[in-house]
């Protein structure tokens, strides 16, 4: 059943979404800053994985660096599907298949590396999260409840300020 008010809502939300992205993208300097910043963030993410490879005694080669870039990127793309908390399992799976397929690293070692790499990242995240919760005095459960309600309110089409 086509529902016009729903269509309006979707159109409004898309408009706001596109409008806000436009505000960042339309300004060349802002786009460059945010774009380069994002690339840098992910490069550091890949470096983290490379240090883990190193910890497992894998020799650093150009090929391994390239594969690490690919494995971390695809692993994170796999995490986009919100199937498990933190994408645990999805990341490891994608990472392992790529590393095994493209390097001389044995399958058990590849899986071990993906598990340690992801675990290190999650431990750092949770540790940082706990410190920040104490510092900013935020309760995670309260935040989830409040933001869910806010998400419902936000469903009303609003114009960006």
């Amino acid at each position: 059943m086509s529902n016009d008010s729903y269509a309006d809502y979707v159109a409004g939300a898309v408009e706001q979404f596109v409008g806000d992205i436009e505000r960042v993208v339309s300004d060349r300097r802002a786009f460059a800053r945010v774009g380069l910043g994002s690339l840098l963030i992910w490069v550091v993410d890949v470096f983290t994985a490379l240090v883990v490879f190193w910890a497992f005694g894998e020799p650093m080669t150009v090929a391994l660096v390239a594969v690490a870039f690919f494995a971390v990127s695809v692993g994170n793309l796999a995490k986009v599907l919100p199937l498990s908390p933190g994408g645990i399992g999805l990341y490891e799976g994608a990472f392992t298949v790529i590393v095994v397929g493209l390097t001389t690293v044995a399958a058990p070692a590849a899986l071990a590396i993906s598990i340690v790499d992801h675990a290190v990242k999650n431990v750092v995240t949770v540790a940082g999260g706990l410190v920040s919760m104490g510092w900013l005095n935020v309760s995670l459960t309260t935040a989830v409840e409040e933001s869910r309600e806010a998400g419902d309110v936000d469903a009303e089409p609003t114009t960006p300020d």
């Binding site: 919100p82 199937l83 498990s84 908390p85 933190g86 999650n122 995240t125 949770v126 940082g128 999260g129 706990l130 410190v131 920040s132 919760m133 900013l136 935020v138 995670l140 935040a143 989830v144 409040e146 933001s147 869910r148 806010a150 998400g151």
Partner: peptide, 22 residues
């Protein structure tokens, strides 16, 4: 940090909203 921790603890990216709340 807090919102990403939320995404780790809760499924379906519930943590995303946490950041908007903070």
């Amino acid at each position: 940090f807090i919102s990403q921790t939320g995404n780790l603890v809760f499924p379906a990216r519930l943590g995303d909203g946490v950041r908007a709340y903070v």
